[in-house]
Computed example of a mutant assay.
Amino acid sequence: MTIALFSGQGSQYPGMGKDIIESEPELGAVYDIGSEILGRDLRAISFDSSAEELAATVNAQPAVLTASIVCLLAAHRKGFRYQAVAGHSLGEYAALYAAGILTLEDVFRVIKARCEAMDQAAREHKGTMAAVMKVEPAQVDEVCRKSKHYAAAVNFNSPQQTVIAGTPEGIAEVSEVFKEMKAKVVPLKVAGAFHSKLMKSAEDRFREAVKNINFRQPAAGIKFYSNVTGKEFTDYSHFPSLMSKHITSPVLFTSELDAISKDGFDTFVEFGPGKTLTGLVKRALKNVTAYNIENAETLAGASF
């Protein structure tokens, strides 16, 4: 069985998605719809921004979302089919669209509310993030809990990779501890301490902004796996609350992959910029197929 995965913030790069809509011009309509709802030119943001400009939360989130969606739609035109979806952090919103939980218009309305709320929270509470490698997740969590300044383990990506978030002072403090432990610490290209308590004001604003959005049941035959629960999500009665909580909750991606594998999925196709999730899948699971589709070249090389 096949699952579609979707990239998160930090994977963005200028020009992502461009050759897809050049080879499939009809998919340019996705950029048009997004631009109208955002009130900004998504093509200019995605294709003409510098790397620094694109890294801004209000730019990165809609740009990565759009690139992920056009990659999926281009693959679908060539015969790609899937039985489940999952995304990493921001990628969960492309997954909502892919599962039929949100319409294209509504996913842009939701991401507009999310990126603006998170951008404002990041301005109110300065924060940053880093990936810690070669240290067990429990040790990462323990070091963060003991730090003088605020730091927290927020993305559990694999047994050997955990992302931390916190104040600049907190991340600097624990980074020194991890380096003494011979760990590798890599700063991330993000503008705030996402999935941490520093995003609480964003959670509150987002909840209010999306209270009237229609979150539907997934399309028949499609499973949706959640970062917050780390497993298949089945109770959609309070879905706006779940997605609000998603902003301040850890991403339980390791648990998610374990649940997906136990449910019998053996083919993982990542859509959107980069191949971070493809790498995580290959390191975490055995006897599976995993590859990414991020441009016309990788699309042409895929077989469905």
Rank of each mutant, 00 (worst) to 15 (best):
G39K: 08
E52Q: 06
P25I: 07
I20N: 13
A51C: 04
L38R: 12
D32H: 13
I20M: 12
R40D: 14
Q61D: 06
Q61N: 06
I37S: 10
E22S: 13
A55Q: 14
E52S: 04
D19F: 13
L42I: 05
V64S: 02
S46F: 03
D48P: 00
P25R: 08
I33G: 01
V58E: 15
I45Q: 05
E36H: 13
G28C: 11
P62S: 10
E53S: 10
Y31N: 04
G28Q: 10
E26M: 08
P62V: 07
E52W: 02
S68A: 14
I21V: 15
S46V: 04
Q61Y: 05
D32R: 15
E22K: 13
P25F: 04
I33H: 00
G28A: 11
V30R: 09
E36M: 07
A56I: 08
D19G: 12
S50H: 11
I33Q: 03
L54S: 02
S68K: 11
T66Y: 02
N59C: 01
S50W: 08
D19I: 14
L38N: 11
E36K: 15
I20A: 12
F47S: 04
S35Y: 02
A60W: 07
L27N: 06
S23V: 10
E53I: 02
S23P: 00
L38C: 08
A55V: 11
D48N: 14
S49C: 13
V30F: 10
P62Q: 08
V64F: 02
Q61L: 06
A44Q: 13
E22N: 12
V58P: 00
E22I: 11
L42D: 00
E52G: 03
A56G: 00
Y31W: 12
E22M: 11
L65R: 05
L42T: 04
A29S: 11
T66C: 14
F47E: 03
I20C: 11
D41A: 03
P25E: 08
S49R: 05
A44P: 00
A60L: 09
A67D: 07
G39D: 07
I20V: 14
A55D: 13
E52V: 05
V64M: 01
D48C: 09
R40E: 15
I20H: 13
E52T: 09
A55F: 00
Y31M: 07
E36I: 04
S50V: 09
V64R: 00
G34Q: 06
L65C: 03
L54W: 01
T66G: 01
D32I: 12
L65Q: 03
L27W: 05
E22Y: 03
S35H: 04
S50D: 10
A67Y: 07
A51V: 10
I21R: 11
E52M: 02
G28F: 09
V64Q: 01
L54C: 03
L65T: 03
I20K: 12
A29C: 00
G34F: 02
S35D: 02
I45T: 10
P25Q: 06
S46C: 15
P62R: 06
T57Q: 02
N59L: 01
I21D: 07
P62A: 05
G39S: 07
I37W: 08
Y31S: 06
V64P: 00
A60C: 10
A44D: 13
A51E: 15
E24R: 14
R43F: 02
E24C: 13
